[in-house]
Design a protein around this nucleic acid. Structure first.
Length: 645
DNA sequence: GTTTCGGTTCTTTTT
DNA sequence: GAACCGAAAC
């Protein structure tokens, strides 16, 4: 069976899919079939006889990787089986598990997620007696360290810039940074940035390793290229240097992650870096009404430095975006709910509707109003599944069993016991010689003797699992460890600690089901550190049973689409955000964010502009409409004025 | 010295 | 919700 490419793709897409070998840049505007093009490109390569294991497909999120592999499998079946696909962090992890010893790491290094990393930074600052009122918090420090790693600049420079208006001693920040690096070494741990940095070091410092992968990968494809940072771009450049069969897909208009290190220049300079690049542009939009595209095209056109392009509509004109002027936040919430009700009466499903905003707190009034009126909604939450307290709690037992030197896991696990906090747990860990040896039949007893009396009964519930872990070789079955831990201890613990314990226990049962796809606990652990969203990976029956209206930040809505979209708080200082108002580069990025927001809508787009904003001390502050609205021609909108409702 | 508890503040994001 | 801070209890 062969695929009818001509039939499945438009001329723009087909040209990109069938591009000859060599460097290719595909500029794909919103809604022009970017994912389709990439998956058909994979299918096309496979049909031309390229072995799947010789294709590397880089994505930014696990979700994107998953989706693309699934769609490619539908096209060419199991032939894509051996394809290397995933996030940069996954690929780096996969390579480092094999070659980390070259960089002085053991192959069983642990991966610190953000929570772990933050805890470690906090511990370093406390140890150096620097933690105090005047000193930056762990998450601020970590963001500086991380940004420095991702853009390859000295921590000192960035710290000086970041703390220029604060009485912060940059030397002290550097001391914390050094301590953090030392502690990571000691724990045989890498944080997310280390995965990228060391993944690149592998290629820079070990030509033989690079040669091996250069040989393996005949074709490299990169999705969302506009979001790559300096490290990722160089990693790809090195890997593609010899064969130059590199196809990157992206949209400079949708570059909205520079604040976390994405380097806009990577996509802009691609044709210069790769002589002979073929550039393809996808501008035929299948998603939105022409009136919505007119607005998106008009707002983005004024941005400097971009591959100019204008999206072409395929649909027929029907309805302009609606500009809604409102009194303040509460009337905005009532208006949106009222409009949502009307959409539902007209036959829309709740899943057809999304409300988008610049920052999560912008939707507070709306969340209250939706709750009050009993409309089902879901918020893309800020907390990631695998970083929720209860998930990390149960995983800490698996971690310490698999890797006895995992101090963070040990401290977390013992911290669950009454009368034990960080200090007590650390003391015990040191008395055990810096590790909990699961193979030692006395290990559990040793811990018990060192515990304060009040903690011992709880520990006696957990301790048998350590012996069973060895006796029954449970390392192949992380789910069983978690199951026994819950039965023996954690379910009771959850009931006393969390008021929503039912939901959390359900989560953990989901986690146990999730473990079945892994053959051993090590794979499970390194995977969950890199995974953020269980819903994307497993079927979500609960969500499907009850269709819900989606509330999301614009950032999290990227790549998605809905028939009806509401944008809240279209005011200067909110969208664009206050912090971006004085810097032209950040303002341009906010404008791209607005472009992303508008292009999520297929049929109906409502832009809400309140006139007043409540502030802390009971007052109200007038706020002006967003520049993104005032700078485009008025006739692009249908206006609606809603006073008090 | 540690742990626990209650009040306050903040919430662009991915790995 | 959760992270942080300060005060009270152990």
């Amino acid at each position: 069976m062969s695929i009818d490419f001509e039939h499945a793709l438009n001329a723009e897409q087909l040209a990109a899919v069938q591009a000859p070998d060599g460097p290719v840049l595909v500029i794909a505007a919103a809604g022009t079939g970017k994912t389709r093009t990439l998956t058909y490109r994979v299918a096309w390569l496979v049909e031309r006889g390229i072995e799947a294991r010789r294709i590397l497909l880089m994505t930014f999120t696990n979700k994107a990787a998953h989706e693309m592999l699934e769609r490619a499998t539908q096209l060419v079946g199991s032939a894509v089986g051996g394809l290397w696909g995933g996030t940069f962090h996954h690929m780096a992890n996969r390579m480092l598990r094999r070659h980390a010893y070259l960089l002085g790491y053991k192959p069983d290094f642990t991966i610190l997620d953000e929570d772990d990393a933050k805890g470690l930074v906090r511990a370093c600052a406390t140890e150096l007696k620097l933690a105090g009122k005047e000193f930056p918090k762990a998450d601020v420090l970590l963001s500086v360290f991380s940004f420095a790693a991702n853009i390859e600049q000295p921590v000192r420079d960035l710290a000086e810039k970041r703390f220029s208006d604060h009485p912060v001693n940059v030397d002290e920040v550097l001391r914390v940074h050094e301590a953090y690096i030392a502690r990571k070494r000691q724990l045989h741990a890498m944080d997310f940035d280390d995965l990228l940095v060391n993944g690149l070091r592998l290629f820079r410092e070990h030509p033989d390793v690079l040669a091996h992968y250069e040989e393996q990968f005949e074709h490299i494809l990169v999705d969302e290229y506009q979001d790559t940072n300096t490290l990722q771009a160089e990693w790809v450049d090195r890997l593609a240097a010899r064969r130059r069969n590199l196809l990157v897909v992206g949209d400079d208009f949708q570059s909205i992650y520079s604040w976390r290190g994405a380097n806009f220049a990577n996509i802009m300079s691609f044709p210069k870096r790769y002589e002979g690049t073929t550039v393809f542009k996808l501008v035929t939009n299948y998603r939105s009404l022409p009136e919505i595209l007119d607005l998106a095209n008009a707002c983005i056109a004024g941005n400097p430095e971009q591959f100019q392009k204008t999206m072409k509509a395929t649909r027929t004109a029907h309805k302009k975006p609606v500009l809604v002027r409102l009194r303040e936040g509460d009337s905005q919430a009532r208006y949106v709910v009222e409009r949502i009700r009307r959409c539902l009466r007209q036959g829309r499903a709740p899943t057809d509707i999304a409300v988008l905003y610049r920052a999560h707190f912008h939707a507070m009034e709306l969340q209250m109003e939706l709750t009050r009126q009993g409309l089902p909604f879901m918020v893309t939450s800020g907390v990631r599944f695998f970083e929720q307290a209860h998930v990390k709690d149960v995983c800490s037992l698996v971690r310490i069993l698999v890797h006895g030197e995992d101090q963070l896991a040990f401290v977390r696990l013992l911290g669950l016991l009454p009368k034990v906090g960080e200090k007590t747990a650390l003391k015990i860990f040191h008395k055990l010689g810096g590790k909990l040896d699961a193979a030692d039949p006395e290990a559990a007893v040793k811990v018990e003797r060192l515990l304060p009396e009040g903690a011992q009964p709880a520990w006696r519930k957990i301790a048998p699992i350590i012996a069973q872990f060895n006796a029954e070789k449970l390392t192949g079955d992380p789910g069983e460890i978690i199951f026994r831990f819950m039965a023996a201890f954690y379910e009771d613990h959850a009931v006393t600690c969390f008021d929503n314990h039912d939901r959390r226990i359900e989560d953990l049962q989901g986690l146990i089901n999730f473990t079945t796809r892994y053959e051993n606990a090590e794979d499970f652990l390194s995977e969950i550190a890199l995974l953020t969203n269980l819903d994307a990976e497993t079927e979500a029956p609960i969500e499907q049973q009850r269709p819900m209206i989606k509330l999301s930040s614009v950032h999290q809505a990227k790549g998605l689409e809905w028939p009806v979209v509401f944008l809240l708080w279209m005011n200067d200082g909110l969208f664009p955000s206050q912090r971006s108002l004085d810097d032209p580069a950040t303002e341009a990025e906010e404008r791209r964010l607005f472009y992303v927001a508008t292009t999520r809508a297929k049929d109906e787009l409502y832009l809400c502009v309140p006139e007043l904003r409540r502030v802390r001390e009971g007052g109200a502050m007038p706020c002006i409409p967003s520049r993104f609205i005032t700078e485009v021609p008025n006739e692009l909108f249908e206006e609606e004025y809603v006073g008090f409702i």
